[in-house]
Design a protein around this nucleic acid. Sequence first.
DNA 1: ATCTCTGCAAAGGATTTGCATTGCC
DNA 2: GGCAATGCAAATCCTTTGCAGAGAT
Lengths: 151, 151
Amino acid sequence: MNELNDDDIPAKVKAIFTEYLKKHNLRKTPERYVILDTVYSIDGHFDVETLYNKVNGSKYRICRATLYNTIELLLDCNLIIEHAFGKRKSQYEHSYKCKQHGHFVDLGSGEVTEYSDSRIQQIQKSVEEALGVEISYHSLTFYGYKKRNNI
Amino acid sequence: MNELNDDDIPAKVKAIFTEYLKKHNLRKTPERYVILDTVYSIDGHFDVETLYNKVNGSKYRICRATLYNTIELLLDCNLIIEHAFGKRKSQYEHSYKCKQHGHFVDLGSGEVTEYSDSRIQQIQKSVEEALGVEISYHSLTFYGYKKRNNI
DNA sequence: ATCTCTGCAAAGGATTTGCATTGCC
DNA sequence: GGCAATGCAAATCCTTTGCAGAGAT
C-alpha cells in the first residue's frame, strides 16, 4: 500500500520539485521545501506578502529574496502559475492537479472570482497549432462590474 | 459627404473622449488630445515609457504624471485596455473598433504575439450569465515556448 | 477669477541585486 | 572544503503623490 493516491498531493509535488532541483543541479535547501509546502497549503491566490507571513509563522525565518528566488523555480517547473490582475504586485497559485480556471475581476472592488470553462482548452489547442508553440499555461481574466441586485 | 466612415477612427475616438470629458466635468486640455492621438497612432501594445517617448517627439512636452493621469481616463471610457504580461510595467493598446484578441507570451524571449479566436466571446457570455456580471473587456494570455524550427 | 491640470521632484511599494555568511553536497 | 543559497540592506524600477504655477472655463 505504498502507492500514492490522488490525494497525496504534497508528496507528489515534492517529488516533482526534487526531480527538478536534481536535474538543474540546484540545492535542496529546507527553505525551498518549506516554501513549497506553504504554497500548497494556501487555497486560492496569494501574493508575496501573504506568503511571507504564512512562511514566517512556521519555525523558519525566510526572507523575501529567498521567496522570490524560489517562486522563480516553482514557476519554471510549473508547480505554480503567476497572475497580474492589478498592476503592482503579482499573484500566484499552485497549479499541480488543479483544473485550469479563469478569473473575473470586479473593477469596482478589485474582488477576484474564479470560474471554469472547458472550451478554453480547445482554444489553447488551436493556438498551439496556429502559432507553432507549446503552451505551459494560460491566464484568462474578465474585467467588469457586478450587477446591482435585481430591481 | 460629412458622414464619418469607418476609417475616420481618430475623429470618432476624439468625439467619444470629448463626450466623456464633458460628462464628467473634466477639462479638455491639449495634452489629453495629444496623448489620445498618439495612443491611436501606435500599432499594437505599448508601455508608458514608449508612449512618453512618442509623445515627446511632437512639439509638446508631457510629463509622466500627466500620462498616467490620462491613461486612467482612457481606460475609464474604454478607449484603451490594459494588460499586465510581465510583472513590472503595464502594457496598453487602443481598443476602439478593434476586435478583441488574445496574446501569446514567449517565456523564452518575452516576445508577445497576437491571435484571435471568436470562441472567447461565447465564453464571455457564459461567464456574464453564470456570475451575474457585466464584462467590460477580457485578457486571455497563453504562456509557453516557441518550438524550435523543425529539424 | 476660479479651480483643475500640468510639470517637476520627491515619495512609495514591489522586486532585484550585492555581499558576507551559512550550510548543502 | 568548495560553492551555491540565504539573509540583510541598499538599489532599482514603475507608479503615485504633493505642490506651485499655468491655463481651461
